[in-house]
Design a binder for these strands. Sequence first.
DNA 1: AATTAAATTTCGCCT
DNA 2: AGGCGAAGTTTAATT
Lengths: 264, 264
Amino acid sequence: MCLNYNPVSVFVDPDLADAEKIAKEAISQHKMLLIAGNCWVHYVGRARSKLDPGERILIVKEDGSLLVHRSTGYEPVNWQPPGCIFQTCLKNGVLELKAIRRKPRESVSVFFDRVYMISSLSLKDPGEFALYASEEDMQKAILFEPSLLEEGFKPISYEKRVEPGFVDVYGLDKNGKFVVVEIKRRTAGKEAVLQLAKYLEFIKGRVSRETRGILAAPSIAKDVQRLLETLNLEFKPLDPKKCAEVLNRFETIKLEAFFKQGSQ
Amino acid sequence: MCLNYNPVSVFVDPDLADAEKIAKEAISQHKMLLIAGNCWVHYVGRARSKLDPGERILIVKEDGSLLVHRSTGYEPVNWQPPGCIFQTCLKNGVLELKAIRRKPRESVSVFFDRVYMISSLSLKDPGEFALYASEEDMQKAILFEPSLLEEGFKPISYEKRVEPGFVDVYGLDKNGKFVVVEIKRRTAGKEAVLQLAKYLEFIKGRVSRETRGILAAPSIAKDVQRLLETLNLEFKPLDPKKCAEVLNRFETIKLEAFFKQGSQ
DNA sequence: AATTAAATTTCGCCT
DNA sequence: AGGCGAAGTTTAATT
């Protein structure tokens, strides 16, 4: 009835007393808790709701958030945001799991009379989430659509090896000057400016033409902007959302080209 | 490594080939699919996103919706609304699960290199979900706050047994007339009107005072309204949300009274 | 902390 | 099916 493996423990068809023990332990140890069973739900707070009995999935996350999912629908039928306090109570053959929140004062109670499966999970999740575009995507977008950087820009190469590291994008402006581009996905900090300065220094020593250094990022702090200007570098606002639109457009074009080719 | 019980099958530490088989089967049979494992996610569509590797929960529901949940946060990090088409692909030790939607054209791909647990579930869920107030709650709200029905209304009893069934609420109006109230949670239909008429007919035969029949519901269809008027009955708009506010207020009052009592 | 604006908003009601 | 408005909206950014 029980299986353990690395970050997960699964119990199938536990009695409600065992289920309560497992749930209590998972919650107190800040593990993710997952229950499949027959339940009904009461919510009182900003609004109020009742969910009549049925088989559903309950998730309690490490941060004290709660989700009740039915077998259909993208949205949870009931939920509670992070930071809840939890109580469990086993009485008359019913296991109650209550998630309480203050500010606003509200609570969700889930009542189980059957638990088919209960699982506690310790999930390690260091992965970064990048909406619209990662730094790599922003680089790709500039290569697809160089005018994102400035009118007349012509990329020559990317991820170019220079002594201190790799130059994100490297090219010529409309006047034939060499341009070194450093891309940041978030508000550019001092490090980004210094990095760009280093790369430019290296390039200057190896090229006879005039050079420019451009820092492309969604935004830049005022004091960092001053440093940038002191070092004779430039800032270009680059919106990840705009980059995503460019990438989607080009991928669609590539896709259409593929279908055209395929149909001939 | 595998446990079966009634509506759920759970597989712990399956190899990716088994996981693919289980996933394919669950999806084709319109069962709910649940995977815990190490994964990364790409989304392209209205927007675009990348999620770097980490341990997460994937849910595919019967209706073809998809959810990727991290260990924290109330919202899914990636998702796809109901009605998706699914593809799976096992290649180079990576299991890809792709959910495609048209209109708008978008797709979410989840790549697993480790599956800790995979489960398919056949959940039966007939339970009704009532936001704000169930019919019973609306009845309770009128008893707490009779002016919800009309100014001067005085409830006498509720769930009163009459020959054809049970009268929801029963009382006197400000002029001393008997009032029979029929409550519906949704737009009132013909049945509700006929039911109220039946109850009122029964009451009329047993009471010497004048009587009124009031149908309380969020709304009523035009043709049903005509029938209602023909039968000399009345309609009173009753908003479940307003009822919920009343109930919350009274529960708070009851709670405060309880605490006052407790502290003395 | 409070206010405002955006969201892969979603969802329901109406035409 | 498309458009509008509300949501237990939520969430992030800004004052």
